[in-house]
């Protein structure tokens, strides 16, 4: 559906939404309400309400310790909230184990890349495909049950690897890839699982500038093909460059959300995040 949109400036369609924390979106794919997670005395996540618009790139920003990764963990079943409810495309994900969340089409990547080092790039890709008949132990002995499916998956994996510029490395161990190539592999691998929404945890962290541009280009073109993306990012240039909507968290709260332009002008964000960074003299 995204392909028919005037995708040059998709932000225009969301500018009519007021930049208020917890504001309702016109077509939310992910809706979070009263999500609460406490680690001992520390409230890591306390999100009153958050909606993520379909077919948009939403950036999640905030200083270190703001609860961004914890929120990702909660949303994807890698951690469980003390209370709260969240729905992905109308379906409640509460109490769902991580693997089941992924099967609903909500697939995440990790801040520290999790390339399966001692498996080939191609095996990394093949693993991710869903609904594999040969993944059942009782079928595993009988190659005739899954051989044809493997062939189809292999060609789909190779196509994706071509797209991400990793096709030449298909038979190399994933552990031999550079940091940036691993990030690309992780995104390509996530796509192999045929998600409807991607949660990318710092997709450009520790990646050289040339590959950062390539990763961002891929993220944009995924959006243009209809994918919804929520990503955690620290680099404000990246955030301003590609996101349609920005959500800012501090100490577990969502303190602001809006189009990128409104976020850089937001007092609360400047105080909590940009201001603090400027004061430190970083970046």
């Amino acid at each position: 559906m995204g392909a028919e949109l005037p995708t040059r400036e998709p932000a225009r369609t969301v500018t009519t939404i007021p930049p208020v924390p917890g504001v309702a979106k016109s077509d939310p794919i992910l809706t979070v309400s009263s999500l609460h997670r406490r680690f001992g005395g520390l409230v890591a996540v306390d999100v009153e309400h958050l909606e993520v618009e379909r077919n948009r790139i939403t950036a999640l920003i905030g200083p270190n310790g703001a609860g961004k990764t914890t929120l990702f963990n909660l949303l994807t079943g890698f951690d469980h909230p003390d209370r709260g409810e969240w729905r992905f495309d109308g379906r409640s994900l509460h109490r769902m184990p991580a693997y089941a969340v992924a099967r609903t089409g909500l697939v995440r990547t990790f801040q520290l890349t999790k390339a399966l080092a001692r498996m080939t790039v191609l095996d990394n890709m093949m693993l991710a495909a869903s609904g594999q008949r040969g993944e059942r132990l009782r079928n595993s002995l009988f190659a005739n049950v899954w051989r044809a499916q493997e062939r189809v998956l292999r060609s789909r994996a190779v196509d994706l690897l071509e797209r991400f510029g990793l096709a030449q490395m298909r038979d190399d161990y994933a552990g031999t890839l550079s940091g940036g190539q691993r990030k690309l592999l992780e995104i390509a691998r996530a796509l192999m699982a045929e998600p409807r929404m991607l949660l990318l945890d710092e997709p450009t962290a520790g990646v050289n500038p040339a590959l950062v541009q390539s990763i961002l280009q891929h993220v944009k073109s995924l959006r243009d093909e209809g994918m919804t993306i929520l990503f955690v990012e620290h680099d404000m240039d990246v955030v301003m460059g590609i996101s349609d909507w920005v959500v800012c968290m501090t100490e577990g709260w969502i303190i602001a959300e809006g189009v990128p332009a409104s976020i850089v002008a937001n007092e609360a964000v400047i105080d909590a995040y940009l201001g603090a960074r400027r004061a430190e003299g970083t970046r």
Partner: peptide
């Protein structure tokens, strides 16, 4: 965790 994140 990588395997879990991919629906396994």
């Amino acid at each position: 965790d990588a395997a879990r994140s991919l629906g396994k």
